[in-house]
Amino acid sequence: MTTTGLYVPGTGPLHRLTAGTKLLALLAVSVVVIVAGDPRVSVGTLAAALAVYPLSGLGLRRAWHVLRVLWPFLLAIGVFQTLFGDLPTAVRLVGQLAALVLLANVVTLTTRVREMLDLFERAARPLRHIGADPDRVALVLALTVRSIPMVAAAWRAAHEGYVARGLSGRPHLLVVPVIVQLLRMAEATGEALVARGIDEPDRPGRR
């Protein structure tokens, strides 16, 4: 799996928007949903996030893949808040989390990695005055964005193995396989960076 494998080519309205516009829109929606603090707003935003997928040519199947990974966490949050808080709060938190993760995934799927890197690099240019390298800052931010789908992919791979072995009722057995998958992905990413000379390790005698 590569960092460029996330982008889904298309000609929809979201594909035509710039990376900066999409990220600003995502930030604005996040602020509105969180500040509103209303379960109805959260549920409405979740419905809108689901509608964005087919409207962007991505299909609801991709949204389902995200929710399939998230549902254990959403269930845990919902149950905890219902038992120790109240139902409206549980609905609000679950709706907020699901909606914002879905929208963030849409941004990732409709934005080329190069566009994201260029945006982060431009935003990081002022840091050059304090000795930071804008290229490396952009790379770190891009890899951070990339890590979210990586976790989803690791969970899917571990869950498929879990089901294939006929295991059930012991979800804790997924923890170690997920960690192993993430370590393998991180190692593969590091090797790819070194192969391209982006993050070449220090060698003896090298300054």
Rank of each mutant, 00 (worst) to 15 (best):
A47E: 08
H172G: 01
A25G: 10
V41W: 11
I34L: 13
P88S: 05
G166T: 03
I34E: 01
H65K: 14
L102I: 12
V52P: 04
L103R: 04
R68M: 05
P9T: 04
S147G: 06
A123F: 03
Y7A: 02
S30G: 07
Q81I: 01
P126T: 09
V33Q: 00
L75F: 14
A123N: 00
L24E: 10
V31I: 14
A47Q: 06
L23H: 07
L50Q: 03
A188P: 00
A186L: 14
S30L: 02
P13N: 08
R207C: 01
S30P: 00
V69H: 11
R112T: 05
R61Y: 10
R156D: 15
L109D: 03
P171Q: 08
T2C: 09
P39Q: 12
L46T: 07
D135V: 05
G197D: 00
S168I: 03
P72I: 05
P149L: 04
P201I: 02
P171V: 12
V145Q: 12
L117G: 03
P201G: 03
V32K: 01
V33T: 04
T11A: 13
V8K: 07
G205A: 09
L24K: 03
A152S: 06
L17W: 13
Y53A: 04
L182W: 07
E191K: 11
L109M: 14
L139F: 14
G78E: 00
A123L: 12
A153G: 04
P201R: 04
A63W: 15
L23S: 01
L93G: 00
M116V: 08
P134W: 12
G12C: 10
L87S: 00
V94W: 04
Y53M: 11
H65A: 14
M150D: 11
L60W: 15
V194T: 12
L173I: 02
